[in-house]
Design a protein around this nucleic acid. Structure first.
Lengths: 227, 227
DNA sequence: CGGGGGCTTGAGGCCACTCAACGATAGTGG
DNA sequence: CCACTATCGTTGAGTGGCCTCAAGCCCCCG
C-alpha cells in the first residue's frame, strides 16, 4: 500500500484545508494517503473511528446492512468529499471503494485537539456535519415519498452537479449501487433509465452504460418534484 | 400568547442547559416561552432561522412537502427535545404542533455568540447536530429498505423509549402522521397495528386508539430487523 | 475464444396503495 | 344532557407499481 506524509494540503474547495487548518495548526495534523482497490472495505460499521477521510481520487459508498442482506447506501463520496467524520467514537456506516480509490487520512484525535483551541476548525466541523444532515434530510423525502422515476431523475441531477465533466457524466457506480442508494431494485433503475432515454432526456455514450449525457436538464428537473 | 423571561434553565436532561450554559453565559441568552395550539405552524421551510426551540410540553412534527402535497415527516420532537437548529440561516423543515404545545426559545444569534467563545457550547451544538444526523441515517435505512410491519415495529420501539410512562405509550400523533413519518399510508399503518394486536405483542388501552401497551417488547424487536 | 459480471428486457406476482364504507370518538351547540 | 357533525380509525375489495424470476445481450478480461 502507498502511504505518504503530505507536507501541504490541497487548494481544492472542500479539502481538509477547509477545515480551517492554518499554517500553525497544520503542523499538528499528520496527513497521509492510502489506496483501496475496487470493492475493498475502508472501514466497517461500529468499528472505532480512528481516522477522518477525504477522497483524493475515485469514489466511495457508505451503507448500512440489515441482517438478511438488504442494503441502504446513505451517500456516495466523490473527489474532494470528506467522510468518516463521527462525533461518537464509532463509525455508523460501512464504507467501500466503488472503484480504485485514493484517500487522505487525518487522525480523528488530531482534529479534535485542534478544534478544541481553534474556533474556526470547530465551526467547519459543524458545517460539514450540517451538510451531511441536510443531504440525509433530502434523501429521506426521496426514499419515503418519491416514485421510481422521480428518484432516478433526482439521482441524475445530483450526479450531474457533482461529477459532470465536458458534458459527460461518467458514473463510477453500478446499477445495483444506484438501486441501493435510491431504495429500489437494479431492474427498476434500469427501466427508469430506459424510459428517460426514450423520452429523449438523456443519451448513452460509448459502449459502457455508465457514461450518460443529459440532453434536456430542464425536463429532467421537471420529472423530479421539488419541495 | 404567554411569554415569560425565564431566569433559570431546566434541570431536565437534554435541556438548553445541556448546550453548556454556565452561570456566566446564561446571562447573555434570553429564554422565553411560547405556546401553539394543536396543528399550528411554528415555522415554515425556508423561513429565516431566528430561533432555536425546545419542547417544554406537547409534541412537534417537522416535515417537507412535495409540490403535489406528498409529505415526509423527518422527526417528531417530544418533551425536552431541541429543534430548529440550523447551521445555515434558513429552516429546512416546516414544523407544526402535533397537539397543544409549549416551547422555549433562544435567539439563534445569542447561541452563536456564546459558541464563539465557549468551546463547551460549540461542542454540544455539534453533538446535537450529530444526534440528528444519526437519526436521519437510521431513518433512511427504514424508508429505503424495511417492510411496512418492520417500519411500524421500529416506530413503536422508538416511541416506547421516548415517551412510555407507567407502561402506557400515549401517542400524540395521528395515524396519518405516523404514516408520513414511515413513508406509508395511514391504512397500511392501521393494518400493521391490527396485525401486531392479533399477534399479541401490543394492546390498546381506554377508548382512544392512541394509547398502546407493549405486551411483548422482545417479539416486537424481533419483527424489526436490525443492522 | 470462453467465462463471468453487468445491464436490459419480459412475464408474472405481491405488497402497499387507492377507493370506499362504516364505526367510534370528540367537539359543538342546542 | 343529548343530537349533530367532523375527524379519526378500521376494515374490505380491487388496483397498480415495484419486485421477483428468468432469459439473453454485451463487454471486459483472462
Amino acid at each position: 500500500m502507498f502511504v505518504r506524509i503530505a507536507t501541504d494540503s490541497a487548494q481544492r474547495p472542500n479539502s481538509l484545508r477547509d477545515l480551517g487548518m492554518t499554517s500553525d495548526s497544520k503542523a499538528i495534523v499528520s496527513l497521509s494517503e492510502f489506496s483501496y482497490r475496487k470493492g475493498k472495505e475502508i472501514y466497517g460499521e461500529k468499528e472505532p473511528a480512528e481516522y477522518v477521510y477525504q477522497v483524493k481520487a475515485g469514489a466511495v459508498r457508505s451503507y448500512k446492512l440489515l441482517s438478511d442482506g438488504r442494503r441502504q447506501i446513505g451517500a456516495f463520496h466523490l473527489r474532494g468529499d470528506i467522510f468518516g467524520l463521527e462525533n461518537g467514537s464509532e463509525h455508523r456506516f460501512t464504507t467501500e471503494a466503488v472503484i480504485d480509490t485514493t484517500v487522505r487520512l487525518i487522525r480523528r484525535q488530531s482534529l479534535e485537539t485542534v478544534a478544541e483551541s481553534d474556533a474556526t476548525v470547530a465551526k467547519n466541523l459543524l458545517s460539514l456535519t450540517t451538510n451531511n444532515l441536510q443531504h440525509a434530510e433530502d434523501h429521506m423525502l426521496l426514499l419515503g415519498r418519491k416514485t421510481s422515476l422521480e428518484r432516478v431523475a433526482a439521482f441524475l441531477l445530483e450526479m450531474d452537479k457533482r461529477l459532470t465533466a465536458a458534458g459527460i457524466m461518467a458514473l463510477p457506480m453500478s446499477r445495483r449501487d444506484i438501486a441501493d442508494y435510491l431504495g429500489l431494485t437494479l431492474e427498476t433503475v434500469s427501466r427508469a433509465l430506459s424510459r428517460l432515454h426514450e423520452f429523449g432526456v438523456l443519451g448513452f455514450v460509448g459502449n459502457t452504460q455508465r457514461q450518460i449525457v443529459l440532453l434536456d436538464r430542464e425536463r429532467l428537473a421537471g420529472l423530479d418534484l421539488q419541495s
